[in-house]
Design a protein around this nucleic acid. Structure first.
Lengths: 190, 190, 190, 190
DNA sequence: AATGAATGAGTCTTCATTCAT
DNA sequence: AATGAATGAAGACTCATTCAT
């Protein structure tokens, strides 16, 4: 009969898990999911390859965990910045800039891996709700969340385009794009 | 110095190249770039693995060619559908729906492969111009293309979200999202 | 931080490495570097292809390791045979005879791979020093090692020519060539 | 019944053959046999890959042809330089310097390809004879060519070592090595 | 005589993952 | 809990060579 592990071991295990996630997040963010290998993640975190598999089912597993942490971080940042519309937009933008490659992989994996997709949908729902809380006049009517969703998608896409330089390459300016976003928000608030 | 090859041979070579591109596009669209291997592309097109490399420098090379064909196809569709705003939006949507996975790979590769990025920027510039031609009141002032770019990005992102089901999963409706797009277009036309 | 591995595991790893080197040396010696592939080396040593790359960076890496072993073997043989000049020559000759193909590859690789060249130069310096120790009257004056180098080169070349049969094909006899070498040594000892 | 080809065609064919050899020799000399591919040779000479195989059985075939040309060139150079011993040595040295990589490949191929070996032996015999003609007091007695062979081997090896930089790397000087060669020649002339 | 198209058979190398300790 | 050793299963890319024209 296996006893519950003493809390000390459990704590240690949690710490290891966290170190692995941190290492993975960093690798994913800078090299991308497909250019990262699990052996490298483990080594970078200070462990042997096999240790990785004691804590995560597979590479996708740690990606999901990193994703979760990523969302939590974004929320924390947003809550700290709910003053006015533009600050909020800039906060999102900064976050996207930092995690551009990660977000790209996320979309890529969502297209292939149902598990990622499910998780992504779940998180997006929560995100939309939060957005609606931050700007209550965006709240849905009759459970039709189209407006906040539309806004969220646009913010995401514009942020990405600014972050990856393609906006500039198309002769669009950051200032004007943000102005457009603000205008959009205002128009959606009836 | 080799003479210009007889046109018959040249035609054959072109046909082979096209068959390879078609096979690759199909594979990319249904299995994704990273799950497709060059040997399979060649085989599927009816050739030996080595033949692939007579026509393309590497896997990325054929991706670029497929991308080019993809854009051409979209333009053809758009030109045939320039009647009214909504038809246009629906055309883009249909196109994105069909090539969802391809577009995802495109973004992923753009983040890692400078060559893809360059090509993407170039094509986007042309796309923005075309858009401005279709809706002349979107034309830029002072070479600031922010408005058409903003529109294009939003259309892209919303189309993708509808196509991949995440819009629906977030309780947004296709009809309302399209309505939002139409509204956005109208608001951008000053 | 990973602890130092238990010595048992370390020993096992060393054994694997050694088995790979032995297999490679044998393949190189009998089939030549360019006709040997890493998968075959691994299989021959009783391992899977991937195991090879846990122990060596690439094919060149194991060649260098085999080279090192080869030199060590020659030195051991020479030390056991430092009685008189002719025995020494015959020892070198026997060694070259056995490793003819290996030596040829070595020269070929030295011409193309800077890493091999560097290593070769380093080992040759040590070899020359050893030779000067064995025959102290060959010691250099004013750091000019031309005499022992000249001797070493000649010994090498003549040994190779005897070993590969080209001496005989040119109607030279082994006995006379060795006599010439002995004479050369005597003349270099002033 | 195939007629003998008109001499015009034959001349053209010869010219093509020569262009191929020149291109191959250049590639072999600068990139080495194993880094040269027949398609590149043909292209460099201004022909299509298949043309290569109209003129040579295979890659080895053109190597042999290039080897033949190489020997002829060396002989021409030596005949022009038969004045004194040192000039002769320096001529050999210069030739080896230029064709270092080629010579290395030659030895490598001789170890694997019997055809190369046979050819090499045949040419060396002639070379030894010529050497004996240039320095009649080196002439063999009783068909024992050991002396000129010994000299030739030593000259070759020392030349190579000077040419590839390994002599210098071993702290031997070119001047002293050449002096040693001259001395050796004098000692062999009884 | 020359060639463009095509290829069979490799060959190196990678990486997520497992297992005995 | 952690790990060192090992691997199965690919997958991108190369090259000497042939054949129909």
């Amino acid at each position: 009969m296996a006893l519950a592990p003493p809390s000390k071991q459990r704590a240690k295990s949690q710490a290891t898990r966290q170190k692995l996630i941190d290492a993975a997040a960093d690798e994913f963010r800078t090299s991308g999911y497909f250019n990262t290998d699990t052996n490298k993640i483990a080594t970078r975190a200070g462990y042997a390859p096999a240790t990785f598999y004691k804590h995560f089912k597979n590479k996708l597993g740690i990606f999901l965990a990193a994703y979760e942490a990523w969302v939590a971080e974004e929320w924390r940042a947003l809550e700290a910045a709910d003053e006015d519309t533009e600050t909020l937009i800039r906060t999102v933008l900064a976050h996207h800039k930092k995690h551009l490659l990660f977000r790209t992989d996320l979309r890529g994996l969502a297209a292939t891996e149902p598990e990622v997709k499910r998780y992504q949908n779940k998180l997006r729902r929560e995100q939309v709700k939060r957005l609606a809380e931050l700007a209550p006049d965006l709240a849905p009517k009759d459970d039709d969340w189209s407006n906040p969703v539309f806004l969220l998608l646009t913010m995401e896409r514009v942020s990405d385009a600014i972050a990856d330089g393609s906006a500039k390459a198309s002769h669009a300016t950051e200032a004007k794009l943000i102005a457009n976003l603000v205008e959009l928000i205002n128009s959606l608030r009836r």
